[in-house]
Design a protein around this nucleic acid. Sequence first.
DNA 1: GGTGCCATGTGTACAATGTCTACAATCACA
DNA 2: TGTGATTGTAGACATTGTACACATGGCACC
Lengths: 259, 259
Amino acid sequence: MSTETSTPRATYRHGDLRGALVSAGLAMARAGGPDAVVLREATRQAGVTPNAAYRHFADRGALLRAVSDAAQALAADRMEAEVARATAAPMPVTSATAAPPAPATPPSVAAPALLPRSVVVSAQPPTPVTSPFADAHPEPEQAQRMLRAVGTGYLAFAREEPGLFRVAFSVPDHLAQSTSPAKAGAAGRTPFAILSAALDAYAAAGILPPDRRENAELYAWSAVHGLGMLVIDGPLRGLSDPMVDAATTRVLDMVERGL
Amino acid sequence: MSTETSTPRATYRHGDLRGALVSAGLAMARAGGPDAVVLREATRQAGVTPNAAYRHFADRGALLRAVSDAAQALAADRMEAEVARATAAPMPVTSATAAPPAPATPPSVAAPALLPRSVVVSAQPPTPVTSPFADAHPEPEQAQRMLRAVGTGYLAFAREEPGLFRVAFSVPDHLAQSTSPAKAGAAGRTPFAILSAALDAYAAAGILPPDRRENAELYAWSAVHGLGMLVIDGPLRGLSDPMVDAATTRVLDMVERGL
DNA sequence: GGTGCCATGTGTACAATGTCTACAATCACA
DNA sequence: TGTGATTGTAGACATTGTACACATGGCACC
């Protein structure tokens, strides 16, 4: 069952062993979550001795953390795609083919920040696109759609890639790392940064009272994350798809009303 | 480091090996979460050969599920304690010594149910205590305090026993099992049943519009569970205690406003 | 252009774990 | 009394993470 790379690697050096290990880990995580990412199997897939991994990762935990970062980047991509679709199509269609992750430049509206918002993450140079929220007072409807899209994308990722979701968001981490470039998607933003930007727009549109903006990330995130975890990994698994859809809508309603 | 039972067990039969294994598993879960529950170590602590466990559990997963049930029972106890305190003391004191888990008989108000509410879980015969909500229209303040106490207790359990919390609520399960007697605390109610009852009271008090009662468990649960997971096991770990306190309050506010 | 360093990969080894297949002791009941 | 079902035991095996010593070869420096 061991999928070793066909070519037994001519050179002594691998070239990009670290990357290969993370890729293999990602594949295993996709199939079975955190517990399924096993160091030896990763080295096997990379066509390398088990101990070679220790030149790039202190231990299995370090590999897992790297895989987690990569998974967060994928989550970011999924969220960006949902946001892009929501801001493009005025009417939120229930389910359709995913749009390509078009980057949407978030507004830089000042707000009480949990983290140094100034740390703008960008792996690739962010494509300068004229955002529909470039002005100081974006349309409330757009801001609302955007915030919902963030949640929808997050939960879509959870349901489409439960293994990756678990590895992305249930491996111990620190909030201070939430905007680390390693977790950023193709558009240069991490999931946290995407949520943060959506909340900024939400507040700037006047929907969210300014005194409630602070740390709103945590509360919105909690609600959506909880549903995700309960559905894929907890007592809510086995809920029918329509039921999860309904729950998603209701949780997002709750967040909007209650934030 | 192996804590084997001092007496090497005179009799060939253990007496209650299953119970002993679950106890040992609970201890390990307390210390390190699901991954720390190792079958061989449990048998060691029970003073028994590794394979003896297979007479009581199909595999490690089955043991883990039993431990998960036991952990949910402990969570229920913690929640009952918080509810009891909240319904006793009118002013919600921030932190004090926990009151003993006094059972509070929930109202049997009819409401659109996600589960057959008729399945009343009770391990011990439920002590007939005159609940403050025995009448059809409980005081809104009491109902509100009760609902908040459910959330507070849940999160208190998460923070005080992170290992048990993870094993209780992140081991795959089915909602249909949410009222299984195995998960019930000393007062005979499972965490889900406690939440359900609190929401019944909440709705009966007229705070929650009847058309929003249905499946409200899921939404409230999601918010609180998400915060718990993010704080103990995810990117929100490392948040200072006061910050978590504040977040707890805000998430409960959000649930109240948004449910 | 030769040479030595050091990052990177290899080999061997060990303790632990989950679990399989016999086998043994004991209880329960005819 | 004995016979069958329960419950533990004995031994074994594949797999995993990881430690320690050694090999390789690309690159910096003379």
